[in-house]
Amino acid sequence: MKTVRIEKVTDTVREMCMEVNYQLSSDMCKVFENARSTEVSPLGRQILDQLAQNLEIASKDRIPICQDTGMAVVFLEIGQDVHFEGGSLEDAVNEGVRMGYVDGYLRKSVVRDPLIRENTGDNTPAVIHYRIVPGDKVKITVAPKGFGSENMSRVFMLKPADGMEGVKNAVLTAVKDAGPNACPPMVVGVGIGGTFEKCALMAKQALTRPAGSHSAVPYVKEMEEELLERINRTGIGPGGLGGSTTALAVNINTYPTHIAGLPVAVNICCHVNRHTVREL
């Protein structure tokens, strides 16, 4: 049994919220640099250069990479031998988000009620996903999500007969519909299988997987590569203003599903695909 003080969770989440909004992770920087060397459109290259400059300014001056600092999505993987002490875990995470967004000069983009729409003023609550795993570690992933791209995300309840082609078409449809609205170049997270909510959660999780890494399942890896190439042939390009870089990565997660179904979720993210991980 390991004891983790709840304040430790709050402090960690606070720091992670700030860090992740000023500095892209190294996997994202790498795929981004690759894109700068392969983009064929002159305007596209100019836009990618601006985005590179933007990243530099953001980390040097501690200005958010994007003004939409997102709704904070937090994944908690909690070892079953961990005992939290000092208060409610959920409150601790939200307190970390609150402090991070207030102290870090991050934008407060959350409304208390989806229809009454009054800003909560501190970007809480976060969307928290818990998973209990073996061991005595706590793994925290913070992935703030901007809504320009979130709004273009889709769930498709396909039929088993739609098969592989159906899945690919679903992804391409979502990407084309997103187009310039999702601040391309995008990162595309895909969840295939499970149930309605499981595939959406897998698509979100897929976005936190390092860009440029691939699924361990051979056919899924092939699909990731093929889809990335086909997306980059759509011509949408950086900023949606034409070019050969429409997506930086396609990450796919799969799960067993029902004999009658083939759920597919496509979570579109922009080039500001923020994710950071720490372990307590």
Binding site: P64, C66, C183
Partner: peptide, 13 residues
Amino acid sequence: FAAVGGAGALLSK
């Protein structure tokens, strides 16, 4: 006009 989406730090200058 379009400004480049996701370049908020640069545009602020």
